[in-house]
Amino acid sequence: MLLDSRIIDKIKERFSALKERVRLIVFTQEFECQFCQENRTLNEEIASVSDKIDVEVFDFQKNRIEVERYRISQIPATVVMGDRDYGLRFYGIPGGYEFNSLLDTIVMVSQRESGLSAESKRRIKGWNKPTRIQVMVTLTCPYCPQVVRTAHQLAFENEFITAEMVDITEFPHLVSKYQVYGVPKVVINEKVQFEGALPEEAFIDRLLEV
């Protein structure tokens, strides 16, 4: 097991706030994926804590229909969804500080409430441009979960937005591609890039530049 009894007790406390069902869609493969099995095990152990969480596992090579349906570009990958796909993705195992990001996203989806301010909801309500937000993180970065949370909140509120946590230590080719010198680093539609944990309002300002 990856999670000890102390951590499981804390998860149970967090999950007391769950309301609606949540599905964790895990993409993996048996070979040439260092953390795939660990990511699958982590999601299955989290799901075992609550009867409101289900896990589905697909092979990245064999289940191409599901890979295309959820637009999965790399593995390990986890999709957090409820009654529909809100565009919430985790690429890499969400451990370290990002473990809380995964729990936060599960609770958000279960409650069917993003937690964004009324003003932020108003600003992105009419946004209709297909938008991909990538949040580059490391699992030892204490400032990264805040940015992942904001990105996921925006995706939850607007069907045209997808938001991805990307652990750059598992995908080192992205470090050079996006010139990542510090984290968190956000890349929006390959056009807008910024570093640092911007507050919600400033994050939306940058989003609207796309």
Rank of each mutant, 00 (worst) to 15 (best):
D59P: 00
E45D: 12
S101P: 06
V57N: 00
A197W: 07
E32Y: 14
V183Q: 00
I204A: 12
C36D: 08
L154R: 02
I106Y: 12
A118S: 13
R21C: 08
F90L: 08
S117L: 07
L116N: 09
I53C: 06
D85C: 01
L198C: 07
Q111K: 15
R23D: 14
V147A: 08
R89M: 11
E20T: 14
P145M: 01
T28D: 12
I65H: 10
P94E: 06
T131I: 10
N128P: 02
N189Q: 02
D59I: 07
V137C: 07
A118R: 15
I8P: 03
F15R: 04
D4K: 12
I46G: 04
L3R: 14
E200F: 10
E66S: 08
D205E: 11
M81C: 05
Y86W: 01
D4E: 13
L18A: 03
T150D: 03
L18P: 02
E113P: 03
D51I: 05
I11E: 04
K62L: 07
L116C: 13
R112C: 04
V147E: 10
Y143C: 03
R112H: 10
Q74W: 03
V80Y: 03
I188Y: 07
G87C: 00
I53W: 09
E170I: 07
E113A: 14
V137T: 12
D205Y: 12
F90S: 09
K185V: 04
I8C: 03
N189K: 06
N158P: 05
V135N: 05
S73Q: 13
R14K: 15
S50N: 07
K19A: 13
E98T: 04
Q153G: 02
L24T: 03
E30S: 15
I75R: 08
E119S: 13
K10L: 15
L102R: 02
R123K: 14
H173G: 06
S114F: 05
D205H: 08
F160T: 07
T138K: 12
R21V: 05
K62I: 05
V79K: 11
P145G: 00
K52V: 06
K185I: 05
S5P: 01
E13V: 06
L3I: 13
R84P: 05
K62S: 11
V22Y: 09
E195M: 13
I25E: 01
S110W: 10
F99H: 00
P145C: 10
E45N: 14
